[in-house]
């Protein structure tokens, strides 16, 4: 397991040097702040820029604190996922292309350690960013809208973290399998497109990884149906493990494609 530690440090250093450790959390925090703030100041913003006639009455919807946290998550589900996929699509495939791979693969490393070291670093960055963002959003919601109980918030953020781990694993497995462009395409299809399909046709089934985010929001207003919730969690965790095995296998198989 010593090689895991060394690879982990190498990966960590790389992500520090390309500033991913900085800009990805900042983006999530940014949306964690803007979502409550723009919703709170919407009347003023519209008044300042919207050219609404003097006597027009415009009934603004009254948001509850829980709805604001949900809409922050809605932002993460699109923009956040885009950032995660585009930010990490090259994690393994780029190493094959630019020659770093050659330096690594000639050494007697286990490919599982290789994949796991990347998975750990990317997961830490992704989960850290999402939690920082959600905590800021929670704080701003408290300031501007009202209270969301801590137990609800932690159940929500904890459930959502499992979905983030799933996304990270999809991106890394795709990156191990295909060149960078293909990896981006496959992971965007798996993360964004299937999510849309799931929300359109999803009434026919209740157990899937793409339902996790919906169940996460249900913690804010009550609690999800327990059976469906735990089965979805179990299916997602099994999918994560399967994708990790697939990713390890693919990085081993594609090791010969590295450019010298």
């Amino acid at each position: 397991m010593r090689d895991l530690l060394v690879l982990f440090q190498k990966e960590w250093r790389e992500n520090t040097r390309n500033y991913k450790i900085l800009w990805i959390p900042l983006i999530f925090v940014f949306f964690g702040i803007t979502e409550p703030v723009t919703n709170h100041y919407l009347p003023q913003i519209l008044e300042a820029v919207g050219n609404i006639p003097e006597d027009a009455m415009f009934p603004f919807p009254e948001f509850t604190a829980a709805q604001i946290l949900m809409s922050t998550m809605g932002q993460y589900q699109f923009i956040g996922m885009l950032v995660l996929v585009l930010g990490f699509m090259g994690t393994i495939s780029r190493e094959r292309k630019n020659g770093t791979g050659t330096l690594l693969y000639v050494r007697p490393i286990s490919f599982f350690s290789y994949f796991l070291s990347k998975w750990k670093v990317v997961s830490i960055i992704a989960i850290g960013s999402v939690w920082l963002g959600l905590l800021t959003s929670w704080y701003y919601t408290e300031l501007l809208f009202g209270n969301v109980p801590a137990s609800d918030f932690f159940a929500f953020a904890g459930t959502y973290s499992v979905w983030i781990l799933f996304v990270v694993t999809v991106v890394l497995a795709a990156s191990a399998w295909l060149p960078t462009g293909g990896a981006a395409g496959v992971s965007l299809a798996l993360v964004l497109v299937i999510q849309i399909i799931d929300s359109l046709l999803g009434t026919y089934w209740t157990i899937s990884p793409w339902k996790i985010s919906t169940y996460a929001t249900q913690w804010l207003t009550g609690s999800p149906t327990m059976g469906d919730f735990w089965w979805s969690m179990a299916v997602t965790i099994i999918a994560i493990i399967a994708l990790m095995i697939f990713g390890t296998w693919m990085s081993k198989r594609n090791a010969s494609k590295t450019k010298v």
Binding site: L26, T34, V37, A48
Partner: peptide, 25 residues
Amino acid sequence: MEALQGISWGIIAPILVIQLILLII
């Protein structure tokens, strides 16, 4: 811009700070 005066700058400031940090990095 009168309408925007009701907005507290203490709340907006972190947004601008984040943008500035990203720009500088």
